[in-house]
Design a protein around this nucleic acid. Structure first.
Length: 431
RNA sequence: GUGGCCUUAGCUCAAUCGGCAGAGCAUCGGAAUGUGGAUCCGAAGGUCGCGGGUUCGAGCCCCGCAGGCCACCCCA
């Protein structure tokens, strides 16, 4: 048992997993650029009030999952690690006067988020999200653009089995009346409700809809649906979003019970969902419209929409779908020496290759040649550069490891020879 | 935050009834001192998650804690 270990709910991303994350981050970054969303960074912590006011005081994320930094705060400030990205981005939008830029402001952010949750596979206290926001456009076309962008990401990442769940949760004009209707629906059955659901009847009736309790199934099936109770403006917006999605060929499933866990959502709500193996977290991402959030955090009334995709869950899903692809070689060339004790020349030659842009390492240990070549072969390197007695005449051995062939090359020609052969190998040779 | 299952070498796992802690893989070395992934041989690697209890004796039984996982809760 080691003396220290990674804190509960966190983990080290070792070489293989880190590469999987890096590939997803590159994919996200490339898509953001292609769609005209600009990358930004916000701090990993903010004043706790940014999240409390933005996300909602009575949400689970704030009530029981917020990582508060109790000490180390400035006068009158309490800080918290960010549990999601949107509130911080909106804070930055207001602080930097981004309303003076062309609207909407389209941004993208990738980084770790923190929630004090009870950990499980796919659910961590530090986890990574790709977050995309379009602030300043009331939609509905931008709603569809955002949803399609998420679909594109999953498809390009290699997950074909991701579904879009869609709902509209109304706005301040129509939601209060619907919530009251919902209460009336459940109230006669209050005596039969499980305790936790009884509390929700008052605090957050929308949550009742997605309860998994079997006792709730019949009641939920007969519950009034918010999509039937939307005000004219919300109904028109929702219909238009669906029209745009249809035009893009994006399949979705209407999910009347889909309710998002953060208070700031209005109108469009969606989730990316994977029908998967048991024991997997099936929500891979989610998002929605938040037309009141900018004002809530002190800005002018400004609409917005965005999503957050859980990169950890994408990596898990990819592994479940058949795992990582073939292992990429770490380097193109390994410089080895016939004299186990002579390491200077190996290091010098490797450094020259690197300076010429060739991925190379030298065997710096004082092992015999056979062991050095064994190491190079196991790394799947394309070449071994063998430094021996010929070096006195300005020559080295260049060995093609997969081919098992070897030739004498003038040291001056080494870089050119490797570059040429490696390029030919990659384009024509076996994978 | 609630309930359940699990924890033995770096990894995956054995260990009969409570009686000397093991294997495969990986690592390092040798066969083979200027030629590699296979093969053979060997070495190293352990606070049996941690702490307490029962017992002549605990990896195994009991209690507590931690961590992981599963179902909730919730969400990414």
């Amino acid at each position: 048992m080691p003396t220290f270990r990674a804190p509960r709910g966190t983990r080290d991303l070792l070489a293989g997993e880190r590469r999987a994350f890096a590939r997803l981050e590159e994919l996200a970054s490339g898509l953001a650029a292609r769609y005209g969303y600009r990358e930004l960074e916000t701090p990993l912590f903010e004043q706790a009030a940014v999240f409390e006011r933005g996300i909602g005081e009575v949400t689970d994320v704030v009530e029981k999952e917020l990582f508060r930094l109790a000490s180390r705060t400035e006068e009158g400030e309490v800080w918290a690690l960010r549990p999601e990205a949107t509130a911080g981005i909106v804070r930055a939008y207001i602080q930097h006067g981004m309303h003076t830029q062309p609207q909407p402001v389209k941004v993208s952010l990738t980084g770790p988020m923190f929630r004090y949750d009870r950990p499980q596979a796919g659910r961590y206290r530090q986890f990574w999200q790709w977050d995309v926001e379009a602030i300043g456009d009331p939609g509905p076309a931008v709603d569809a653009e955002i949803i399609e962008l998420g679909v594109r990401f999953y498809r390009d990442a290699g997950l074909a089995d991701v579904r879009v769940l869609l709902n509209s949760i109304g706005d301040p004009a129509c939601r209060p009346a619907y919530v009251e209707t919902l209460r009336e629906h459940y109230r006669p059955a209050i005596g039969r409700l499980p305790g936790i659901e009884r509390e929700r009847l008052e605090s957050n009736p929308l949550r009742l809809l997605d309860s998994k309790d079997p006792a709730m199934a019949a009641l939920n099936a007969s519950a009034p649906r918010i999509v039937d109770r939307l005000c004219d403006a919300c109904a028109a917006h929702f219909a238009a979003v669906r029209g745009h999605l249809d035009a893009l060929g994006i399949a979705y499933r209407l999910q009347p019970g889909l309710v998002r866990g953060l208070d700031y959502y209005t109108r469009t709500a969606f989730e990316y969902y994977r029908e998967g193996a048991e024991g997997q977290q099936q929500a891979l991402g989610g998002g929605g419209r938040y037309d009141g959030l900018v004002e809530l955090l002190g800005g002018k009334p400004t609409p917005g929409i965005g999503f957050a995709l859980g990169l950890d869950r994408v990596v898990l899903a990819l592994e479940a779908n058949g795992g990582a692809g073939p292992v990429e070689p770490e380097v193109t060339a390994v410089v080895v020496g016939a004299d186990p004790l002579e390491t200077v020349l190996r290091l010098v030659v490797a450094t020259e290759l690197r300076a010429a842009g060739i991925a190379a390492r030298a065997e710096l240990g004082q092992r015999k040649l056979g062991k050095q070549l064994e190491s190079a072969a196991r790394d799947r390197a394309h070449f071994a550069v063998i430094i021996g007695d010929e070096y006195a005449d300005g020559q080295v051995q260049l060995r093609d490891l997969p081919a098992g062939t070897q030739k004498t090359v003038a040291r001056a020609d080494l870089q050119r020879e490797i570059s040429r052969a490696h390029a030919a190998h990659r384009h024509g040779g076996p994978a």
